[in-house]
């Protein structure tokens, strides 16, 4: 049996993941640590291509076939899923951990109507809990969930195919399916990127409700730092396959420690083009096949020191933050 922290729904320790490709090995995650307590909501932000989706997919063991767990441990609800068979993990998906993919059509089947797919989700939830399925009740539950996510014409939408829906409607169908499953852990990868801010506010409220009522944990991957801050207790910042910083949400937005986190927050647009260009971090994003030696951010870091290009920094704890940077020891 695994020794584990019973308070944690997810416990990732020193996890490294590599994609094998014809053009070389791409190290998408490098010694990542992440612990998520039951009932806790954690937002992951960071550079595009830094491994956020890879981390989410690793937790539910749905990585692409060319991905390999190369190092570390990954406990989901107390079980090391790198050691479980696919069949065993599939039993954990849905009711233990439900993932909303960044590409919603990855969750939905393009050739099946929405109602068929939502009923399948309800059926599998009931089966996992050993309860009986009643078609009429399930249909009503599905409609109600669609209305909860503010879907107009729910009776019509539920009878359509995914291609007959708008981007935000597809996203809401997937969110509704996640809410139907009432999982212990919801991993939501950019779930509101196609929603207008009014619907987004509603969806965030629903997630908070589930978090409070059922003690659901949330991993919320997003590019929108405002949204991340509003939904999460803690925020994790990723850069080039590594966790640069993990802090309480309020601390991160007010007093980010890692130079990458600081630069990221400084890039949030607030102006109009008449006032000049937007801030972007100078230099180019790292080549993930041969990443920079030492700290992966050092070629773009305004505070770079000698040591930064030689050795990879370890994670240190400063006040309430965990930060991977030589500025802090």
């Amino acid at each position: 049996m695994e020794v584990s922290d019973p308070d944690a729904i997810v416990n990732v320790e020193g996890l490294s993941i590599t994609y094998r490709t014809v053009y070389g090995n791409l190290q998408a995650l490098n010694t990542v640590d992440l612990k998520i307590k039951r009932g806790e909501s954690v937002a992951i932000v960071g550079e595009s291509g830094s491994g956020k989706s890879t981390l989410g997919l690793a937790i539910v063991k749905l990585l692409a076939p060319n991905a390999y767990y190369t190092k570390g441990r990954l406990l989901l609800d107390g079980r090391d899923i790198t050691k479980l068979s696919n069949r065993q993990v599939s039993l954990l998906r849905g009711s233990t951990a439900f993932m909303i993919f960044q590409d919603p059509l990855n969750t939905l089947n393009p050739v099946k109507r929405v109602d068929v797919q939502m009923l399948e989700a309800i059926r599998s939830r009931l089966k996992q809990k050993g309860e009986t399925f009643n078609e009429e009740a399930a249909y009503q539950e599905a409609i109600d969930k669609l209305k909860d996510v503010r879907m107009p014409d729910a009776d019509s939408i539920i009878r359509r195919y995914p291609h007959q829906l708008s981007g935000g409607q597809i996203q809401r169908v997937v969110i509704a399916m996640g809410l139907l499953m009432k999982p212990k852990l919801m991993i939501a990868d950019e779930p509101t990127s196609a929603l207008d801010v009014t619907v987004q506010a509603q969806v965030l409220d629903l997630m908070r409700e589930l978090q409070q009522e059922f003690h659901m944990s949330i991993i919320f991957i997003t590019h929108d730092i405002n949204v991340a801050h509003s939904i999460s207790d803690r925020m994790v910042v990723m850069y080039a396959g590594e966790v640069s910083e993990a802090s309480p949400a309020d601390v991160l937005v007010k007093k980010a420690l890692h130079p990458y986190s600081q630069a990221l927050i400084a890039s949030i647009p607030t102006t109009s083009k008449k006032e000049g260009q937007l801030n972007a971090i100078a230099g180019s994003p790292p080549d993930m096949i041969s990443p920079p030696k030492g700290c992966r951010f050092h070629p773009r870091c305004p505070f770079v020191m000698d040591i930064c290009s030689r050795e990879s920094p370890r994670t240190v704890t400063k006040d309430e933050s965990d930060v991977r940077c030589y500025l802090y020891g």
Partner: peptide
């Protein structure tokens, strides 16, 4: 929605 999947810095670059 050309920048909905981009972090703030890359989004700035594209804009």
């Amino acid at each position: 929605e050309p920048t909905s999947a981009l972090d703030a810095s890359v989004q700035s670059q594209v804009l």
